[in-house]
C-alpha cells in the first residue's frame, strides 16, 4: 500500500479520504435502510412519509419501523465494530472477536439464568443481565488468566476465555433443554435480528454504547505500543493493566449493550476489524474510527439484504452477517496472509 503504512505517524491527510468515503457509504446505507424493505415504496412516497404529517401505512412503515430499525443498526453496528477492533488489539490476535474473551458467553449465560430462575424478559432486563454477565466473566477470565508465575498475557487470556465460554455454553444448553420455558423466553432474543426494534430500548442503551466508545477513543493510542509486545510497550511507559481494564470495560459496555438490543450477531466484530485494518493500516488511532463507520455500514447493508433476499419474508440479520462474514474472512486471510 503506502510507504507510511506501518508507522504510528500516519498523516491525517491520508486518512481523510478513507473517513470521508466511509461516511458517504454509511450515508448511502442509511438511505437504503430507510428506503428499501419488504414493502416496496417509491422514492416520492418515502420522502413524503419522512417529511409529511400523514398517518397512512407508508408513513408508519418509514417512520415507525424503518427509522428505529436503522437507528438500532447504527448503534449495534458501531458498538460491535469497535468492540471487535478493541478485542483484536488487546489480544494482538487478528482472529479474535468479542466472543473470545468470554464476554458474549457471559452475557448470554447471565441472560439465561435471569430468564430461567427469575423469569426476567424484555430488553431492559436483558441489558442489565448482559452487562452483569459480561463484566463478571471478564473479571473471572482476568483473575484465572493472572494465576501462575508468568502473569497475564493475551494468549493466556484467550485460552481462559475460550475455555470458560465452552463451559458456560454447556451449562446454558443444559438449562435450556431442561427448562423449555427458558428457550421460549430467549427465542426472540437469540435470533440476532434488528426487526421489531423498540426505540425506547435503543435510547436506553445509547448512553452505555457512547461510554464504551469514549473509553475506546481514550485507550486507542496506547494500542500502537501494545502491538509491539508487552515488554516494549512497558518500556514506552504504557501502563498495560490500565489499558487492559479500560479495554475490557469498553468491550463489556459495547458488546453487552449491542447484544441486549439485537441478540447475538455473529461475525460482525471480526469482519469489521479485519476490513478496518486492511483499509487503515496498523495504526489504532485510525482502525477505531474506521471500525466505527464500518460496523454500522456492514450491519445496515446486511439488514437491507436480509429484508429482500427471501421476499416477502425476512431473515434475521445475524444469519446474513454469518453468511457474509465467513467467506469474507477467508478471502481476507488468503489475501493478506495470516498476520
Amino acid at each position: 500500500m503506502t510507504p507510511t503504512r506501518g508507522t504510528a505517524e500516519r498523516p491525517l491527510a491520508r486518512a481523510v479520504p478513507y473517513l470521508t468515503g466511509g461516511l458517504l457509504l454509511l450515508g448511502a446505507a442509511v438511505v437504503c435502510s430507510v428506503a428499501i424493505g419488504s414493502k416496496a415504496l417509491g422514492v416520492g412516497e418515502t420522502l413524503q412519509a419522512l417529511t409529511g404529517a400523514g398517518v397512512d401505512e407508508s408513513a408508519t412503515i418509514v417512520r415507525e419501523v424503518r427509522l428505529p430499525r436503522t437507528l438500532l443498526g447504527l448503534v449495534t453496528g458501531a458498538a460491535l465494530g469497535v468492540a471487535g477492533a478493541l478485542i483484536q488489539a488487546l489480544t494482538r490476535n487478528p482472529l479474535a472477536d468479542p466472543g473470545i474473551l468470554g464476554v458474549s458467553a457471559g452475557a448470554g449465560f447471565s441472560v439465561t439464568l435471569g430468564v430461567a430462575f427469575l423469569g426476567l424478559t424484555g430488553v431492559q432486563a436483558h441489558l442489565w443481565l448482559a452487562f452483569l454477565g459480561a463484566a463478571a466473566v471478564t473479571v473471572l477470565v482476568y483473575l484465572v488468566g493472572a494465576l501462575g508465575r508468568s502473569g497475564t498475557n493475551p494468549t493466556r487470556l484467550v485460552l481462559v476465555g475460550v475455555a470458560l465460554s465452552a463451559v458456560l455454553a454447556g451449562i446454558q444448553s443444559g438449562l435450556t433443554l431442561l427448562n423449555p420455558r427458558v428457550l421460549d423466553g430467549m427465542r426472540a432474543w437469540a435470533a440476532g435480528s434488528l426487526a421489531g426494534s423498540d426505540p425506547e430500548a435503543t435510547r436506553h442503551v445509547i448512553p452505555f454504547v457512547l461510554a464504551g466508545l469514549a473509553l475506546a477513543v481514550w485507550v486507542a493510542p496506547a494500542f500502537n505500543a501494545v502491538a509491539m509486545g508487552e515488554d516494549l510497550s512497558r518500556s514506552l511507559g504504557v501502563n498495560l493493566t490500565v489499558v487492559r481494564v479500560l479495554t475490557v470495560a469498553a468491550v463489556t459496555l459495547l458488546t453487552g449493550g449491542a447484544t441486549a438490543l439485537a441478540g447475538p450477531i455473529m461475525f460482525l466484530g471480526l469482519m469489521v476489524a479485519h476490513i478496518a485494518r486492511y483499509v487503515a493500516g496498523p495504526d489504532h488511532r485510525w482502525i477505531l474510527p474506521v471500525s466505527l463507520l464500518l460496523g454500522p455500514l456492514v450491519l445496515l447493508s446486511a439488514d437491507v439484504l436480509a429484508r429482500v433476499v427471501v421476499w416477502p419474508g425476512e431473515l434475521p440479520v445475524g444469519v446474513v452477517t454469518a453468511f457474509l462474514g465467513a467467506p469474507l474472512l477467508i478471502v481476507l486471510i488468503r489475501h493478506r496472509g495470516p498476520t
Binding site: 455454553a169 444448553s173 435450556t176 428457550l183 430467549m186
Partner: peptide, 13 residues
C-alpha cells in the same frame, strides 16, 4: 455469542 449457536438453534428448530 457462539454459545447460543448450536444447542439453541437445534432446539429452536
Amino acid at each position: 455469542m457462539r454459545l447460543l449457536r448450536r444447542p439453541l438453534t437445534a432446539a429452536v428448530g
